[in-house]
Simulated assay, not measured.
Amino acid sequence: MLRRTLLTSAAMALGLAGTAFAQDKVKAGFIYVGPVGDGGWTYEHDQGRKAVEEALGDQVETVFQESVPEGADAERAITQMALSGADIIFTTSFGYMDPTNAVAAKFPDVKFEHATGFKRETPNVSTYSARFYEGRAIQGHIAGKMTETNKIGYIASFPIPEVIRGINSAYLHAKKVNPDVEFSVVWAYTWFDPAKEADAARALIENGADVILQHTDSTAPQAAAQEAGNVITFGQASDMAEYAPKPRVSSIIDNWAPYYIDRVQAVIDGTWESTDTWDGIGPGMVGIGEISDTVPEEVKAEALALKDQIAAGEYHPFTGPINKQDGSVWLAEGETASDGDLLGMDFYVEGLSGEIPN
């Protein structure tokens, strides 16, 4: 009887130790606006999540919820993830900003990281984003050089500063190398809707565009361009290399992995602090996908030189002189835009037609 009691006590002790060990494992949660198989934005965030698992091994457990609509549904999903024991939660879409801060106020011991937002209302919220406009400058350069119709189409998601910055950057750099270029912007009012995105691409192509850029998340515009024939495209958020060498001639790649690993490691180490991160090509958060041989060698060399200049901090994509759409001066000769101006950008630059929706 004594032996059985001792063995039972030992087993219980081992069980408790195992429970304690399991509880020491940091749980990292991810809320996604699209499906992990979207081939773009959500796909790359999920690649970052997988990189966390690979890098941190037994120290971490990750969970995710995909296709969470922005708004009230997001607050419910984030709350449920916090209740399930997550130690850190990454909310990966602009429209999750208010829900993230609302839930963070109720769970002060949980760390929250919001992608592309600007509100940090409690000390347990951080914000992070990438300077996508740097990649748009390179795309604009290639687009301006390669268009034969001088018509470039742009599929935009929502009229928020991040998207407006991208349109302006691409246009400025296309116009710089091709003064005759015209941009047509179609607002899709979605991040991920393959049918809508394909329809937008087809409409732009029917209107004469032979270059399509996008700030939406699916590969549907690539497929529509492939069907059309003499149209080129650029991968958005991920490489979309399955459409190379044409129509996809290059891409902007969002590399979230180093940031996610670093932030989860900080939770493990007990060193996590509320921060605001906005990195670009130089630090590696924005990557430029391989430029295919469809692009003439001279244009490819120019694009890579521009990339190197941006990475080294030798060139800023928003360097004056630049006027606003109404002709008023925004940046004087040689002046560069401040981060504050860029983060609040709500206007088109001179030369772009149409109005930004409210």
Rank of each mutant, 00 (worst) to 15 (best):
A170I: 03
F118L: 11
S274Y: 10
F192A: 04
Y259D: 07
D193S: 14
V264E: 02
D239F: 01
L213I: 08
N255P: 01
V26F: 03
V211P: 00
N323M: 12
V163P: 00
K151E: 05
D210K: 04
G340R: 13
P159L: 05
S9M: 13
E302K: 05
K106N: 14
E242R: 12
A82N: 11
L342F: 07
E61I: 14
S157R: 07
I89Y: 04
G71A: 09
G15A: 15
D346E: 12
A137G: 06
K196N: 05
N323F: 09
A143D: 04
K50F: 11
A203V: 01
L213E: 00
D193I: 04
Y315D: 01
G287Y: 03
G57H: 09
A266D: 11
N101I: 04
V211E: 01
T233V: 08
I138V: 11
S157P: 05
K145L: 04
V264F: 03
A266Y: 02
F347E: 12
A228M: 05
A77H: 03
L352H: 04
G85S: 09
G71F: 15
H114G: 01
V103N: 00
A20D: 12
I253Y: 05
H114Q: 15
V185A: 02
E297M: 09
L7R: 10
P161S: 13
Q226V: 06
K300V: 06
A105N: 10
P161H: 08
H173M: 07
S274Q: 13
V211C: 06
G166R: 03
K307Y: 07
Y259S: 06
T100R: 04
E197N: 08
Q309E: 15
V286G: 01
L16F: 15
A174Y: 00
I205F: 01
G117F: 02
Q65S: 10
K300T: 10
T277E: 11
K300W: 09
A225L: 03
S93Y: 09
T147P: 03
A332E: 13
V264S: 02
K50H: 11
A223L: 09
E314D: 15
P247I: 00
L83H: 10
